[in-house]
Amino acid sequence: MNLTEPIWKTWFAKHGGKLLLFARQQARYPDDAEDLVQEAFVRIWRLYGHTGEVSPGLVYRAIRRLAIDWARSLDRRKIREDKVSLDSPLSSSFDRSLEKDERKQALLRAVEKLPKEQGEVLTLKIWSDLTFDEIARTLDLSLNTVASRYRYALQKLKDSVPREIEDKPQTHTL
């Protein structure tokens, strides 16, 4: 029996979660993340998908450029106003298993509080598995800038995680 499956499904299952995480950082509103990923992925796959091999770096770059375009677009602002905005923490983008782990929760809260330029480098390096060279090309930065932002981000996390554990948000049960 000869079974086939579209290659994009395997590709998307592998990279989709990482793309969403990056899009969440790039989007002005978290609700835009899925739309950004969909738009960027569909554009790139239509152009290059026939080869069956699409470099994830292309989609990350397309997400970033679209996010910049959308931030300027008036039409997009109208779409956003029509949507019900949900305030979701960064931990909602990760596996549910870490919900009970206080240290990991604190770590993600600290990541969320990083300056945007450090957070995006950290996300691409840690969760998207891009090299510093690929990150530099995706974000149009020099290699040195990328490497130093990554180091600053780790340093900041090291300092702020203990504070985050102390300032743990209170949960109220009714």
Binding site: K9, F12, A13, G16, G17, K18, L20, L21, E34, V37, Q38, F41, V42, S92, S93, F94, D95, R96, L98, R103, K104, L107, L108, V111, L122, I126, W127, L154, L157
Partner: peptide
């Protein structure tokens, strides 16, 4: 760095995949 690498981003939902 090791702690962060241990966290796995959630896979895209079925709804989102079918939208794509």
């Amino acid at each position: 760095e090791k702690e962060l690498t241990g966290l796995t981003p959630r896979s895209p939902s079925k709804d989102f995949s079918s939208r794509v």
